[in-house]
Structures are given as structure tokens and as C-alpha cells.
Simulated assay, not measured.
Amino acid sequence: MLNHFKRRLDRYVPKLLTLDYPEAGVLVPVTDNASNPELILTQRAAHLKTHRGQVAFPGGKRDLTDSSLEYTALRETHEEIGLLPSYVQVAGPLSQVVSRHRILVTPFVGIVPEHAPLEPNFGEIDSIFRTPVSFFMEDRRFRTDEISFQGETLYVPCYEWEGYHIWGLSAVILVDFLNAVYDAGIDILEPQK
């Protein structure tokens, strides 16, 4: 599975944004069950000042001492969900995205053991959940949101899984992952027909 992801991401050219914004790194953790891989997602804590209660990939802002954004993604993931960096096999980066708070986010796809121990840090997140990649491949979206970014309108899916809504920046990263690794063909530049 790791070799497949690496091959796909080696051929993929992630979009890099030349913006002078603070940086963050997030992990797109995929379980290593080849027949039924799942994405690991979090719901941010309800008491946080920004993005409270929203579904997100684990990760966060880069510290000055972080050697790379990949390191940031692994460090922050460990802080948020207790996933040890040694359990993660990083397959490669995805396209950079910008949060509405002007944070430049670089996602990294990582393969993790299906039964890796996870422990939520309730100071940052309320819950951890898993969603089969196959669910997203069916593109059974709950709705489509129109998001303006740098003069373009993006038509971003919102997915509902067991009461969680996966939308916004997380959905943009998710679609990029599905298109890069699985050839999902989900177009966010054109309205869904």
C-alpha cells in the first residue's frame, strides 16, 4: 500500500502557494488495511477560539524549532491524537491550502497501522473517528459549498459520516487526496451536475 501511494504521489505535482503566511502541517492518516483503508479524522474541541467543533485532519502550526512541515504534521498529530511518529510512513505531500485565518497549510499523506493506539488530547479535540475511503469514493455528498479563493469559486463537497460533517478546508484536502491517490475525478472547479 505504501509503495502504491508513493508511486501515485511521486507522479503528482502538488500546488505550492507563494504566500507569506504563517505555516502549518497536517497529516492525512490512512490505515494500512489494503482491502478497506480508512481515514482518521478529528473533531476539534468545542471550547477552542477558532474552528471549534469542526472536523479536521490532525496537525497544527509550525514551531520555530520544527525542522520541516512534515515534522510539524507528525509532532502535532502526536500531540492531538497520541499517534507516535514512528507508526507513520509518510507517502508524500499534497497541495497547499489556506485557512480562512490565513494559515498556509501543507498536508502529508501517511500510512498508519490499522490498530495503532490513539488517544484524544481533550484540550484540542473532542473526538477521533474513522471513515472508509470507499465512502468518499462514492461521492455521496451531503451538500456542495461555494468557497471563494483568490478570485476563483470552488465547489467543495460536504460529507456526512455518522453525524460528523466533513467540509471546508478538510474537504478540499480530502478531495485532493482522493484525486491524487485514487483518481477519484472529483472536480471542485465546476459545479456538480
Rank of each mutant, 00 (worst) to 15 (best):
D32S: 12
L17D: 07
A46D: 14
D139M: 03
D63P: 00
Y87C: 12
P29I: 02
F142V: 05
Q89T: 05
T106M: 11
G53W: 10
P93I: 00
E80A: 06
G53E: 14
S127R: 13
L41E: 13
Q43D: 05
V88Q: 01
R62L: 13
L74A: 02
A116Q: 03
G82W: 00
A116N: 05
T106Q: 15
V133P: 09
E80W: 00
L41S: 07
G110C: 12
A34I: 15
G123Q: 14
I103V: 15
L64N: 06
D63T: 01
T65W: 11
S67N: 10
R44W: 08
L74F: 00
V98K: 03
R100W: 12
Q89C: 06
L27H: 02
D126G: 12
P85N: 00
F142H: 13
F57S: 09
G60H: 08
L27P: 02
T42C: 12
S35M: 08
V133F: 04
N121K: 08
D32K: 04
E114C: 00
F122Y: 15
S35I: 10
S134C: 09
S95F: 00
H47K: 11
S99D: 04
L84V: 07
A56K: 08
L64F: 02
R141Y: 15
P132N: 04
L84M: 09
G110T: 07
I125M: 06
L27Y: 04
H47L: 03
F57R: 05
A116H: 05
V30M: 12
D126P: 00
G59Q: 06
K49W: 02
V88K: 02
T42M: 13
A56D: 11
L17Y: 04
P117S: 07
T65Q: 11
P120W: 08
G92H: 02
D32L: 02
Y21W: 07
V97C: 02
L17H: 07
L74R: 05
Y21I: 04
L17C: 03
G92N: 01
R102Y: 09
F135K: 09
L17F: 07
H78F: 15
Q43C: 12
P132Q: 04
R75P: 14
P22Y: 05
R52T: 08
E119M: 08
P107Y: 14
A116T: 02
A45E: 14
R52M: 06
F57W: 11
V28N: 00
T65D: 14
E38S: 04
A45R: 14
T42I: 15
L16I: 10
G123K: 12
K61M: 10
S67T: 13
L74W: 02
R44G: 10
V90W: 09
A45V: 04
E38C: 07
F136S: 02
A34C: 09
D66T: 01
V133N: 09
E119D: 09
V133D: 11
P37F: 01
M137Y: 01
P22A: 10
D63G: 04
Y71N: 12
N36G: 07
F122L: 12
F142L: 14
F136R: 00
I125T: 08
I81P: 05
P107W: 13
L64T: 06
Y71S: 10
H51T: 10
V55H: 04
P22R: 06
V55E: 02
S67G: 13
S99N: 03
V133C: 07
A46K: 11
S67A: 10
A24N: 03
I128P: 06
G123M: 10
T18H: 14
I40V: 15
F129H: 03
M137N: 01
